[in-house]
Design a binder for these strands. Structure first.
Length: 126
DNA sequence: CTAGTGACCCAAC
DNA sequence: GGTTGGGCCACTA
């Protein structure tokens, strides 16, 4: 059964990383991207989670944005569901936001592969 | 091929 | 605190 079976290698890397996020912790989209060897591709992480296969066993709710907020729109019910799942794991919300300093999970420094592009930014002082 | 969109991010106002 | 604009990449029409 191959049905649209060309889920990219990137998706699998991302899902694999998300499964490592421990209970009671959260990770940002960008953080998951980095931990997956895909720096600067936070958007892809959101895409990968949005397109999860049905009945997929993965702690998707532990991924939030860099502001410490839930990225799902509030008008679908998913937003509240994610929040409830997190609170059930002991994560506290303060005004729709969690304290990343306290709850953010960091992957054990996987040597960052490569940094694509980035154009030129000579912000360096001299 | 181009243009628009998206569970994103960051620096600058 | 808030908004704007650029950058990213995969996907769709």
């Amino acid at each position: 059964m191959k049905q649209t079976a060309r889920l990219s290698d990137s998706y699998e890397r991302i899902w694999k990383t998300v499964r490592k996020i421990p209970r009671g912790k959260v990770a940002t989209y960008g953080g998951v991207a980095r931990a997956s060897g895909l720096p600067r591709q936070a958007r892809l992480v959101g895409y990968a989670l949005h397109n999860l296969p049905p009945n997929f066993d993965i702690p998707w709710h532990r991924v939030i944005n860099s502001q410490g907020r839930i990225s799902l729109p509030k008008n679908g019910g998913h937003h509240e569901r994610q929040r409830r799942l997190l609170e059930k794991e002991g994560i506290a919300f303060l005004k729709d936001r969690v304290d990343l300093k306290r709850y953010e999970w960091r992957a054990q420094s996987s040597k960052r592969k490569f940094l694509p592009k980035k154009k030129h930014a000579h912000v360096l002082p001299h």
